[in-house]
Computed example of a mutant assay.
Amino acid sequence: MRNILVLGGTRFFGKRLVERLLREGDSKVTILTRGRAEDDFGEQVSRLNVDRTDAKALAEAVGDTPWDVVYDNICFSPDEADAAGRIFAGTVKRYILTSSLSVYDPRPEALTEADFDPEVYPLRLGAKEDFNYQEGKRLAETVLLKQDAFPVATVRIPMVLGMDDYTRRLHFHIEHVREGRPLGIPNTQAAISFIRSDEAADFLYWLGFSQLTGPVNACSDGTLTIGEILTIIEAATGKQAVIEAETADEDMSPFGITESWHMDTTKARSAGFPFLALSDWFPELVTQLNASLGNRE
């Protein structure tokens, strides 16, 4: 029986990861959160309620408990990563950091792990508020991959979608098309990667058994352009999207990138993980979300 700690396991793909761990029945699971979001795991999990940005409180909460795997879904700064490196040294066999496509700058070609190398990136410490999201994730990777107390894999995922997406980014587009509101799209031909929330959880679960270390890209197979996304939404809603290059801030698309921004997953696929086909699940998700929005009216 493996002893697993999940930092951030009460919503979205973190919650789905916990569900997957419990379903397989091969792990004793502890979730660590601030305790502000309720969960429905009952006595199936142990809980540590602590703010992970408080290094002293985090150290006291985890103590010297040995962990087979620590999944860190809520690390956003080099200070947080640095504290984790000290706190879990000597107690964890494998550390998995949820990172992001955002560590890369957009470009036309598919991005490989080598396109951002944390091993040579200049290290700076600081809190979450000292950096934008991209730089915070870059530096968190840099800190953890430069330490040698335990092996680390950093999972670079794109936007995560699903019926359970609390950010409602895909909902945003469907609602705008349904209501005839303009959508700010600077480049309809920009291609982007996505991953479904349960697929992200499945990948994290699989990676806990893998020997892969360092950066690992994880996304569904294939890409969609923003224009293709809107075509799928138009088919589901029966309405035409109103697309403008610039709109009021509240109408600018969360997918409104100016250049393509998508990843190559050869490293993970070569190690044996079978990603879902984006073209298979994305239209179905749009249909489901559109139906759910119709039921609320």
Score class of each variant (00 low, 15 high):
3 N>F: 13
7 L>G: 07
8 G>C: 01
9 G>A: 01
10 T>R: 02
10 T>A: 13
11 R>S: 12
13 F>Q: 09
16 R>K: 15
19 E>K: 15
20 R>N: 10
25 G>W: 15
25 G>N: 09
26 D>N: 11
32 L>A: 14
33 T>P: 00
33 T>L: 01
35 G>S: 05
37 A>K: 11
38 E>W: 13
40 D>S: 15
44 Q>K: 13
46 S>W: 07
48 L>D: 05
48 L>C: 02
49 N>K: 08
54 D>Y: 01
54 D>Q: 02
56 K>A: 15
57 A>L: 12
69 V>F: 10
70 V>Q: 01
71 Y>D: 02
74 I>M: 15
75 C>V: 14
75 C>H: 08
75 C>F: 12
77 S>T: 00
82 D>R: 12
85 G>S: 08
90 G>K: 04
94 R>M: 05
97 L>H: 09
99 S>V: 09
99 S>A: 09
101 L>V: 14
102 S>Q: 12
103 V>S: 04
106 P>H: 06
110 A>M: 08
110 A>I: 07
111 L>S: 07
118 P>D: 06
122 P>T: 00
123 L>P: 00
124 R>L: 15
124 R>Q: 14
127 A>C: 07
129 E>P: 01
132 N>Q: 07
133 Y>A: 09
135 E>C: 07
135 E>M: 13
136 G>F: 05
137 K>F: 14
145 L>F: 12
149 A>I: 01
150 F>I: 08
151 P>Q: 06
152 V>H: 07
153 A>H: 02
154 T>D: 11
154 T>M: 12
158 P>Y: 06
160 V>S: 02
160 V>W: 10
161 L>N: 01
161 L>W: 10
162 G>Q: 02
170 L>C: 06
173 H>E: 14
174 I>E: 13
175 E>N: 11
176 H>C: 13
178 R>T: 15
180 G>L: 03
182 P>L: 04
183 L>M: 14
186 P>E: 01
187 N>S: 13
187 N>P: 07
188 T>M: 11
191 A>H: 10
197 S>V: 04
197 S>W: 07
198 D>M: 10
200 A>Y: 10
208 G>L: 11
210 S>K: 02
212 L>S: 03
212 L>H: 02
212 L>W: 09
216 V>G: 06
217 N>K: 13
218 A>I: 05
221 D>G: 05
223 T>A: 01
223 T>R: 03
224 L>N: 05
224 L>Q: 08
225 T>I: 08
227 G>F: 08
227 G>A: 09
228 E>F: 08
229 I>L: 15
231 T>V: 14
232 I>N: 09
237 T>D: 13
239 K>R: 14
241 A>E: 06
242 V>F: 08
244 E>K: 14
245 A>S: 13
250 E>C: 07
254 P>Y: 05
255 F>N: 00
258 T>W: 09
259 E>I: 03
260 S>D: 05
260 S>W: 04
266 T>F: 15
272 G>Y: 00
276 L>F: 06
277 A>T: 05
278 L>H: 02
279 S>T: 12
279 S>W: 07
280 D>P: 00
281 W>V: 06
284 E>Q: 15
285 L>F: 11
287 T>F: 11
288 Q>K: 14
289 L>W: 01
296 R>I: 11
296 R>A: 15
